[in-house]
């Protein structure tokens, strides 16, 4: 993901801005509410954001106007929900644009939609559904994070395919091409990222489980059960 500056032609970059702005405004409203209610989560919010920045800066070369890297948004989506993650994602993307020249200003909307909005949203929905179904917490975190990664790349492929349709086969042929190129690097990367996030969650449960209860990610009983399993 992280489509380069100037890569998307005219109707498309505006469209993605229009799509992303309402979500970001809603996210800012939610962020404001959360920060006003519980100021003690501010460090965790900022660290989760910095985590997204660090992970998504580890880019590997990938063709077609984009690059391949972990996204790190799954963790934030599970902790704070998709709307706030979208805000963190925008901040990260702006920083990367400004001091790594990674991504771009006109493509900011498109990158926000893929990395900040749709990826975390799907991860969050998956996490909620799977925890209702009683899936093991760590397995759930692993899957949700990996899915956030994959969905992000599928969305990026769709964005690129819509902007550069194949002259004969149309959008679908382009989509298959872009997605195929991403898949070679993204499938192993997403699995690594999922494993890393699940391990981090294990430490969080061990050391700071009260935060997870505070943010209503786990019930106190679930935490007690997970801690029981570690002994």
């Amino acid at each position: 993901m992280h489509i380069f500056e100037g890569f998307l032609p005219s109707p498309w970059w505006q469209i993605w801005f229009v799509v992303s702005i309402p979500v970001i405004l809603f996210g800012m409203y939610q962020l404001n509410k959360l920060v006003n209610e519980r100021r003690e989560v501010v460090p965790l919010l900022a660290v989760a954001g910095a985590f997204i920045f660090v992970l998504s800066s580890l880019k590997l070369p990938s063709v077609t106007g984009s690059s391949s890297h972990p996204t790190g948004t799954g963790l934030a989506a599970i902790l704070f929900g998709p709307a706030i993650t979208a805000v963190l994602g925008v901040i990260v993307l702006i920083y990367q644009t400004l001091f790594l020249a990674h991504g771009g200003l006109t493509t900011l909307g498109a990158n926000t939609v893929s990395m900040g909005i749709i990826g975390p949203l799907v991860a969050f929905l998956f996490y909620k559904a799977a925890s209702k179904a009683g899936v093991n917490f760590y397995l759930n975190v692993f899957l949700a994070t990996a899915i956030a990664d994959w969905v992000t790349y599928v969305v990026t492929s769709v964005q690129l395919a819509l902007a550069f349709p194949h002259p004969e086969g149309g959008v679908l042929v382009s989509l298959a091409g872009f997605a195929g190129i991403f898949a070679t690097t993204q499938v192993p990367l997403a699995i690594l990222e999922g494993a890393l996030t699940a391990l981090i969650m294990k430490y969080v449960v061990q050391i700071k489980s009260d935060v997870l209860v505070d943010l209503k990610i786990l019930t106190p009983e679930a935490v007690a059960k997970l801690k029981e399993g570690m002994k």
Partner: peptide, 20 residues
């Protein structure tokens, strides 16, 4: 922009260096 947004943005900037 709301203060909380700017605050988080600034903290994140600082924390990137903490991470490094």
């Amino acid at each position: 922009f709301p203060d909380s947004f700017i605050e988080i943005a600034m903290m994140m900037y600082r924390y990137i260096f903490v991470f490094l």
